[in-house]
Amino acid sequence: MPLVHISLRSGKTAAYRQAIFDGVYGAMRDTFNVPEDDQFMAMTEHDAANFRYGASYLGVSRSDDLVFIQITANNTRTTQQKKALFRRIAERLADSPGLRQEDVFVSLVEVEKENWSLGNGIAQYA
């Protein structure tokens, strides 16, 4: 049950934004065994004054097309699955909407299963 927050500079088309949603979800299905219809995602757009990044931090050349993707998920995946997820997101977003892989920044936040309530005030995974 990943929860995904995506941040990017404003000005992209609806189709571009939808391609990001679809690519991230598809990558999670490919690598994290995320079930069909398990889509809990939000996207925020920021003007230039409210979107900062290191243009060359760790030797990665980033542009203003940079997309931050933060995924909160149960801490049940292996390191290999995490690496596969990062790689697959970058590949899918390069395919559509055409992002440079250098502009795909992913952060994974892992939580214990009991830290979720998916509605009705119930801890469904506890």
Rank of each mutant, 00 (worst) to 15 (best):
Met1Asn: 12
Met1Ile: 04
Pro2Ala: 06
Leu3Asp: 00
Leu3Ile: 09
Val4Glu: 00
Ser7Pro: 06
Leu8Ile: 02
Arg9Ile: 08
Gly11Glu: 04
Gly11Phe: 04
Lys12Trp: 04
Ala14Val: 11
Ala15Cys: 05
Ala15Asp: 14
Ala15Pro: 04
Tyr16Val: 01
Ala19Asn: 09
Ile20Pro: 06
Gly23Asp: 03
Gly23Glu: 02
Gly23Lys: 05
Val24Glu: 09
Val24Ile: 07
Tyr25Ile: 10
Gly26Tyr: 03
Ala27Met: 02
Ala27Tyr: 02
Ala27Glu: 03
Ala27Pro: 03
Asp30Lys: 06
Asp30Cys: 02
Thr31Lys: 07
Phe32Arg: 08
Phe32Asp: 04
Val34Cys: 09
Val34Pro: 03
Val34His: 01
Pro35Trp: 05
Asp37Cys: 13
Asp38Pro: 06
Asp38Cys: 02
Met41Lys: 09
Met41Tyr: 09
Ala42Ser: 13
Met43Gln: 07
Thr44Pro: 01
Glu45Arg: 04
His46Asn: 11
His46Asp: 01
Asp47Trp: 02
Asp47Ile: 10
Ala48Thr: 11
Ala49Val: 03
Ala49His: 10
Asn50Ala: 08
Asn50Trp: 04
Asn50Ser: 14
Asn50Lys: 08
Phe51Gly: 07
Phe51Asn: 05
Phe51Glu: 06
Arg52Lys: 12
Arg52Leu: 15
Gly54Asp: 12
Gly54Leu: 13
Ala55Arg: 11
Tyr57Lys: 12
Leu58Gln: 12
Ser61Ala: 14
Ser63Thr: 14
Ser63Gly: 07
Ser63Cys: 04
Asp64Lys: 10
Asp64Glu: 15
Asp65Gln: 09
Asp65Lys: 05
Val67Phe: 05
Val67His: 01
Phe68Thr: 02
Ile69Pro: 01
Gln70Arg: 12
Gln70Ser: 12
Ile71Trp: 00
Ile71Ala: 05
Ala73Pro: 00
Asn74Glu: 11
Asn74Ile: 11
Asn75Ala: 12
Asn75Glu: 08
Asn75Asp: 13
Thr76Phe: 07
Arg77Trp: 00
Thr78Gly: 05
Gln80Phe: 04
Gln80Cys: 04
Gln80Val: 09
Gln80Asn: 13
Gln81Ser: 04
Gln81Phe: 00
Lys82Cys: 02
Lys83Tyr: 01
Lys83Pro: 00
Ala84Asp: 14
Leu85Pro: 01
Leu85Phe: 08
Phe86Glu: 02
Arg87His: 11
Arg87Phe: 06
Ile89Met: 03
Ile89Glu: 08
Ala90Lys: 06
Ala90Met: 05
Ala90Val: 08
Glu91Met: 12
Leu93Pro: 03
Leu93Ser: 01
Ala94Gln: 15
Asp95Ala: 14
Asp95Cys: 08
Pro97Glu: 08
Gly98Arg: 06
Arg100Leu: 12
Arg100Asn: 15
Gln101Cys: 04
Gln101Arg: 13
Glu102Ser: 15
Asp103Glu: 09
Phe105Lys: 03
Phe105Asn: 15
Val109Phe: 01
Glu110Thr: 03
Glu110Lys: 00
Val111Gln: 06
Glu112Asn: 05
Glu114Lys: 11
Glu114Leu: 07
Asn115His: 15
Ser117Tyr: 09
Ser117Trp: 07
Ser117Gly: 14
Leu118Ile: 13
Asn120Trp: 10
Gly121Phe: 05
Ile122Phe: 08
Ile122Asn: 06
Ala123Asp: 09
Ala123Met: 08
Tyr125His: 08
Ala126Ile: 01
Ala126Met: 00
